[in-house]
């Protein structure tokens, strides 16, 4: 991987910080204090824990989006896919709560993957069969997921006493251990890294991955080359959704031990996945690194909110600027090459 691949994201972040500083001054705070607080928050004490925790979801959605990109597809629906993945996994966990953990856990993980995969398959299928633009469909699927799960958590699956839209508590046998604090690091980070390795292997070492990439580069030639293009597109979207289905596994099984409507349905990490895939150049290693950078910002901003009162939504703002800086910087640099 050439040097440029590492420099671009860093420069983009630097630019974003610079522009962000203007806005911080505008609301009457000190940029230096703010950024110091962000970095401290990401690492100091319990901060590490949340950084790793966020990193997990970012890696997962980043991988999902990147897989789609490799096939020329824009999966903007990672939010919806993680929602149905998480919800279905929790449902299975509650349904079979008697089953011992060593059997149930794999089943539950598989349920998340299956549900997310199904949610991704639908736009993939529509695209492959009818050429329907997956951007709009995946976005719509996000809102359908919100509606569906919102309903489930307010009526049939709601925890019996109380008014909060949330599910029952998941059996303790499935509670994943946590380190470093309230929302700390948990084993799902290992799952995320394992997924990254698997995605790498899939894309560059298997026939399926070869075909996915071929279709992404040139569907016409792929057809000539005997690849079943519609099937590959549907498969790629389904795989993308399947991966995304795991993105909130840690929230549900390691942190809250239940599905909480406000938390699950407020997930925004699907968009962050786009950022991560972009910065990481759709390569698993790049995605891990980009996820780390973004996780630092995310958890740092959350901590900074308590410390010096910069709202955590500043993170979204930074993210937007990072994307623009990155994209423009890349084009400018690309023009200078040769």
């Amino acid at each position: 991987m050439d040097k440029r691949a590492i420099i671009s994201p860093l420069i983009s972040i630097a630019i974003a910080f610079a522009i962000g500083a203007i806005f911080i001054k505008f609301i009457g705070k000190s940029p230096l204090e703010a950024y110091a607080s962000i970095f401290k928050g990401a690492f100091a004490g319990e901060g590490w824990g949340f950084t790793l925790f966020s990193m997990t979801s970012l890696i997962i959605t980043g991988l999902a989006v990147a897989l789609g990109f490799h096939c020329g597809l824009f999966n903007i629906g990672a939010n919806g896919q993680l929602m149905v993945g998480g919800m279905f996994a929790a449902y299975i966990a509650l349904l079979f709560s008697g089953v011992p953990a060593f059997l149930l856990l794999p089943v539950v993980i598989f349920s998340a993957i299956a549900a997310g995969g199904f949610w991704g398959f639908i736009p993939g299928f529509l695209k492959s069969k009818r050429g329907t633009n997956e951007v709009v469909v995946t976005i719509m699927m996000n809102y359908i997921a919100i509606g569906m799960i919102g309903y489930l958590l307010t009526y049939p699956l709601k925890a019996s006493p109380g008014w909060i839209a949330q599910s029952e508590i998941i059996p303790e046998s499935l509670w994943l251990p946590r380190y470093k604090g309230m929302i700390g690091a948990d084993p799902t980070i290992i799952l995320a890294i394992a997924l990254a390795v698997m995605v790498y292997f899939l894309l560059w070492r298997t026939k399926t991955g070869y075909e996915i990439r071929a279709v992404g580069f040139n569907p016409k030639a792929s057809n000539y080359g005997g690849i079943n293009v519609p099937r590959t597109i549907a498969l790629a979207m389904a795989l993308s959704g399947a991966i995304a289905g795991l993105a909130y596994f840690n929230y549900i099984f390691a942190y809250q031990h239940r599905v909480v409507s406000d938390v699950l349905l407020g997930a925004n990490v699907g968009f962050d996945g786009i950022t991560v895939a972009l910065l990481g150049k759709n390569h698993p290693l790049g995605i891990i690194l980009a996820s780390f950078l973004l996780a630092v910002l995310c958890s740092g901003c959350l901590a900074a909110q308590f410390e010096i009162g910069i709202p955590k939504s500043f993170y979204l703002f930074l993210e937007g600027i990072i994307i623009f800086s990155f994209v423009i910087f890349e084009k400018v640099m690309g023009g200078r090459k040769e």
Partner: peptide
């Protein structure tokens, strides 16, 4: 390209 089946075993290239 087009012959990938011949160079794959169990899905792996």
């Amino acid at each position: 390209f087009g012959l990938q089946k011949d160079f794959t075993s169990h899905g792996v290239i």
